[in-house]
């Protein structure tokens, strides 16, 4: 029964309510924007800024608490378990889109094409359509397009992400062994690789939109392609920003070999993003 063992319960948290307001302004502004309501983008931007402010404030407070030694093994364990389950929730979010891709490829497209249970569907509604992948559907939605091949940029991106997974682990080893140079260098490399990935992905999108006529509106192929890679790209961006923050904190010397939960959480997140990419590479680009 000593104060060292007391579980840290912060008080008078103002960040959550700010976050809620920011979230509502952002989402509400976005929703209004979709309906072309006036001044909606301003509301959305304000919401976004409030959210950024909230994150700086909230995380800043947490960092201060962490640095001032408020967190013991118990709090640390809570953060770890929490992060694992958060990543699980992200896995399930992607599962919805992978599930959609699976369903479209194994059921809906073949059915429309008259295979298996779809023979009458094809006969009476889409008789000129033949099932294939990729496809933009019997109505040739979005017009003729070309497929995004796996062996150009995507393959390079695969290498980049896999390498970044290695560098972040290497940085982690450095952290554990208290080799600051290795930590900072490894982390910096990871951040750079992360942003290169994002840049290449943007390049690929512009190639898709400008040269291949492959857009979100290119039937189910375009839909699944951009939805899956888009959400992944978004997660990479977030992950890279998180890594950049970790880099700054490493340089400030926030982490010790024993106590560096934030770093580890970011690394887990990065590996998760990595694994999702492998799934994408195989099921979206390759097969």
């Amino acid at each position: 029964m000593s104060s060292e063992n007391a579980y840290f319960v912060p008080h008078d948290a103002k960040w959550p309510i700010i976050g809620s307001i920011g979230l509502m302004l952002f989402f509400g502004g976005f929703a209004a924007q979709l309906n072309n309501m006036p001044s909606s983008s301003i509301v959305m931007t304000i919401g976004f800024l409030v959210l950024v402010y909230m994150m700086f404030g909230w995380f800043g407070e947490v960092i201060n608490e962490s640095e001032s030694g408020s967190y013991k093994s118990n709090e640390d364990a809570s953060f770890r378990v929490g992060m694992i389950w958060f990543i699980f929730s992200e896995v399930m979010f992607f599962a919805a889109f992978f599930g959609a891709l699976y369903y479209i490829r194994t059921f809906s497209v073949p059915w429309i094409g008259g295979i298996g249970a779809g023979s009458v569907t094809n006969e009476y509604l889409w008789s000129s359509f033949e099932a294939m992948w990729p496809t933009n559907g019997p109505d040739n939605i979005g017009g003729d397009y070309q497929k995004m091949g796996p062996w150009g940029l995507p393959a390079i991106n695969t290498l980049i992400l896999l390498t970044s997974g290695v560098t972040v682990t290497w940085a982690h080893w450095g952290l554990i062994a208290n080799k600051r140079k290795q930590l900072i260098f490894g982390l910096a490399l990871t951040v750079i690789l992360g942003f290169i990935f994002v840049a290449l992905q943007a390049l690929e999108y512009s190639h898709g939109y400008n040269d291949l006529n492959l857009t979100m509106a290119s039937g189910v192929y375009g839909s699944t392609f951009y939805m899956l890679t888009g959400f992944h790209g978004f997660h990479v961006t977030v992950g890279a920003i998180m890594l950049a923050v970790m880099l700054v904190r490493s340089m400030k010397g926030h982490f010790t070999p024993e106590n560096h939960f934030a770093f580890e959480a970011t690394a887990w997140y990065w590996h998760f993003v990595d694994v999702v990419w492998l799934g994408l590479f195989v099921f979206v680009y390759w097969l």
Partner: peptide, 25 residues
């Protein structure tokens, strides 16, 4: 969340997850 996001893009960004004309269902 994923499901309603697809609804949103089907309505506002011309995706066709849920429309047979584009290969969805």
């Amino acid at each position: 969340a994923g499901a309603v996001t697809m609804l949103l893009t089907d309505r506002f960004y011309d995706t066709t997850f849920f429309s047979a004309a584009g290969g969805g269902d």
